[in-house]
Amino acid sequence: MKKTIFLDRDGTINVEKNYLHKIEDFEFENRAIEALKILSDLGYQLIVVTNQSGIARGYYGEEDLEKLNNYMVEELKKNGVEITACYFCPHHLEKGVGKYRVECECRKPNPGMLLKGINEYQVDIKNSYMVGDRQSDLEAGIRAGVKPILVKTGYGKNQIPNLDERVQTFENLYEFATKLACKN
């Protein structure tokens, strides 16, 4: 069993930009690369789980997302950070078009992407976390049985009044990583 950090992408790893899909618009959150290196050095496998309703809405395609995710993974690899997997949900029940307008188990707050990662990568759920900037990220983590962590980047500052008592809050991914390093 492997301890794992599940990570939302937009607003957690990279700066939140509506419907981000172009490499030239991608920008890591402040100290996010350092944070991911710390987590990796602590022995956590890193799995990205991201809702991508821009695909459902027809703003960009799955190929665009794959290119962007590959870019992010390669940039992190240059800095000694290995991303184990990147899962995404391209669905949206109300705003989706065509085959993407479905109710699914993968769109957070549903835990489908996390459960897939748990099954595929032998995740030790008792020693794993879900880090995100939205209530839906936290709820997906709770439903999957991992510890929910809110970062105040992206939409995180607006989520604080709605928090479940199980949720720990940090200014950003770097603060979470450094505090976790102190525990280990």
Rank of each mutant, 00 (worst) to 15 (best):
T178I: 14
L68A: 03
T178L: 11
K95W: 03
I125M: 06
K99T: 10
K147D: 10
A140Q: 05
L46H: 02
E165W: 08
Y155H: 14
Q159T: 15
D137L: 08
K152V: 04
N70S: 15
I149K: 01
Y19F: 11
L76V: 07
L36G: 00
E82S: 10
E139Y: 04
R9M: 03
E16Q: 13
A85K: 15
E29R: 10
G141D: 08
V131Q: 04
F176M: 12
G145H: 05
H21K: 04
V15N: 03
A177Q: 01
K183F: 08
Q52I: 06
K3C: 04
K152L: 15
I83D: 00
P161H: 10
Q159L: 12
S136R: 12
T84C: 06
Y19M: 07
F26M: 12
E103L: 15
D133P: 01
L93I: 14
Q45G: 05
I13N: 02
D64R: 04
A140N: 07
V167G: 06
V123K: 01
M1Q: 08
S40V: 03
E66I: 14
H92W: 03
L68C: 03
F26Q: 05
E27R: 14
E66D: 12
C106G: 10
I33A: 06
L173K: 10
V123S: 03
S53T: 13
V81Q: 02
N69G: 09
G58V: 03
E62Q: 14
V146P: 00
R166A: 11
K147Y: 01
S128M: 05
S136G: 12
N70H: 11
G11L: 04
H91V: 08
R166P: 01
V131I: 15
E75L: 10
R101L: 11
S53C: 11
V73D: 01
E27W: 03
V123P: 00
N158R: 15
E139N: 11
I5D: 01
K95G: 09
V73C: 08
E105Y: 13
G80N: 09
I33M: 14
R134K: 15
Q52G: 07
N69A: 12
L115R: 14
Q52T: 09
V151L: 09
L150E: 02
A181R: 11
R101C: 12
G145Y: 02
M72K: 10
D10Q: 09
K37N: 06
D64A: 09
Y121E: 06
L39D: 00
F26L: 13
E105T: 13
N79M: 11
A181K: 13
D164T: 07
Q135R: 15
C104H: 07
A181L: 12
L115G: 05
N172K: 09
A85G: 01
K99V: 11
G11A: 07
K3D: 08
H92Q: 11
E66C: 07
N18E: 14
S40Y: 04
D41R: 03
H92P: 12
L150T: 05
I23F: 02
V123A: 05
E24G: 06
K2N: 15
I5G: 00
N127W: 00
T178A: 10
D10S: 10
V146L: 09
E63F: 10
Y100A: 04
E165S: 15
G117Q: 02
N127Y: 00
G11W: 00
P111Q: 02
N172L: 10
Y60S: 08
Q45I: 11
E171V: 13
P90R: 05
Y71L: 09
N110Y: 12
R31P: 01
I149S: 00
G112C: 07
L138Y: 02
L150N: 03
Y100N: 09
S53K: 05
